[in-house]
Design a protein around this nucleic acid. Structure first.
Lengths: 167, 167
DNA sequence: ACAAACTTTCAATTTATTTTGAAAGTTTAA
DNA sequence: TTAAACTTTCAAAATAAATTGAAAGTTTGT
């Protein structure tokens, strides 16, 4: 397979994968493009490569930066900004997990905590409180686990425990 | 908080959470409703409770069943079918992970394997092959890890390793 | 201060996804 | 076999999400 065909296939696959997981397709494609690009790319490079508008590139690069997996870089003698993806895929995975933890898990855990305060002692209420409590514990544990992964040594994910788990 | 208000809040929260992760909102809401329901529910019960059409309930209950987290049950003396969710949240999490692994991770890993076959020895190609190889390893490891979790003792997730990880 | 170079915003449009609901299909009991 | 009870399908409609692109905003060099 030729390099160019390969690049296109990767960008396409990454876009589909992202959209299956609730991530905007173009954002995933920009991420893919930056991952496989040796040099940082400008807004115009991305527009051209993916055939999307300036506004779209602007919004999605901002999002990628907010996720902490893409950074702006400046080239000397160049006025405009370039974008560059973090190529350490373990770090990227950790950051994505952590962002989703904060943005999406957080609010649901908050709701679950409230729901534990539902009043009543009849069978129906007990059933409700039981499942809410179960889901809440599970969620809180998952949350803590991810939090610990982040706080731990940066190498945790590629380190010994991970290796043991994935052996 | 009253039970009914609590139920509604849970259904709403679960629906939002699902949709953030690429799961159709109604499907997540039906799942939520079944999770907190002491008795199995019929199609009509669900239609009424969530204000959605018969076709919608039919499609989404089928999906939930395909995911292995909801089952059909028959009540004696009743013609129609009822639906019931698996209330063991650990099992549910494992099943969801496994389904997503098969459906979504699988295809992307397949593509990555193909992409390793890209030809060329120049710097650009090497860069490409390096990142593809990294992503591929990471993906294959994640895949294997989940697979092992499934195959292992059913109690794995609530068992000692999990407890250690989440301590 | 000016204007060129560049970035950001957002209302309007396009595209994608979800939902509806009525018709077709199936099962059951008599 | 018939009809009532129930389930499934799917084209059309409704809704939600992503995208465009031009105008507004900002920064930089002279």
């Amino acid at each position: 397979m030729e390099l160019n065909e390969g690049k296109n296939k990767f960008i396409e696959a990454w876009g589909i994968f992202g959209s299956e997981w609730g991530i905007n397709r173009t954002m995933a494609q920009i991420h893919a493009l930056l991952l496989i690009s040796a040099e940082p790319l400008s807004t115009e490079d991305i527009m051209e490569e993916l055939n999307v508008s300036r506004g779209n590139v602007n919004m999605n690069t901002r999002d990628l930066i907010a996720w902490g997996i893409v950074s702006r870089v400046l080239k000397k003698g160049e006025r405009r900004e370039f974008f560059q993806a973090d190529k350490d895929i373990y770090k990227v995975a950790i950051k994505i997990m952590n962002e989703r933890r904060k943005r999406e898990l957080g609010p649901v855990l908050e709701t679950l905590r409230e729901l534990k305060g539902v009043k009543g002692t009849n069978a129906e209420t007990k059933e409700f409180k039981k499942i809410i409590s179960d889901i809440s514990s599970f969620g809180e544990n998952t949350d803590k686990m991810i939090e610990r992964m982040i706080k731990a040594d940066e190498n945790w994910f590629s380190g010994s425990l991970m290796k043991f788990l994935m052996k």
